[in-house]
Amino acid sequence: MAATGNFRYRPVRRLTQLYLGLVLYGTSMAMMLRSDLGLNPWDVFHQGLSRVSGMSIGTATIVTGVAVLLLWIPLRLRPGLGTVSNVLVIGLVVDGALALIPTDLPLAVRIGLLVTGIVGNGLATGLYLGARFGPGPRDGLMTGYAARRPGRSVRLVRTVIEIAVLALGWLLGGTVGLGTVAYALAIGPLAQFFIPICTVAPPPEPTTGPTAQPERAVPAG
Rank of each mutant, 00 (worst) to 15 (best):
T83N: 00
G134L: 06
N6L: 11
L33W: 14
R148D: 13
C198Q: 14
V89M: 03
G169P: 00
I73R: 05
P11M: 08
T103S: 12
V157H: 09
V154A: 04
A164W: 07
A184V: 13
I161P: 01
T4W: 05
L20I: 14
P74M: 02
A30D: 06
L24W: 15
L166F: 12
V44Q: 03
T61K: 04
A191T: 08
I118M: 07
V66G: 01
I163C: 15
T16P: 04
T64Q: 09
G130N: 06
D139G: 07
T180S: 09
P203M: 10
P203W: 13
T4R: 04
L20C: 11
V66D: 02
G209H: 04
L33P: 02
V93D: 14
A2K: 12
R216H: 05
S35I: 07
V200M: 07
G5I: 14
L15P: 05
R132V: 10
G209N: 01
I57H: 02
R149Q: 11
V119R: 12
Y19G: 06
R78L: 09
T175M: 06
G58I: 06
T64K: 02
G179P: 03
I161V: 12
D36Q: 15
V94E: 09
L37I: 06
L71P: 01
T143Y: 05
L98S: 09
L92M: 11
V68Q: 00
P106L: 06
R132W: 11
L172C: 10
Y19Q: 04
D36K: 08
T59C: 08
I73E: 04
Y19D: 07
L113K: 07
Y25R: 11
P137T: 14
A191P: 01
R10W: 14
R148A: 15
V176N: 11
R152A: 13
V165N: 01
L190M: 09
L37P: 08
R148Y: 08
L127H: 11
G38I: 06
I101H: 00
L70N: 03
E205I: 02
S53W: 04
N40C: 06
R10E: 12
Y183R: 10
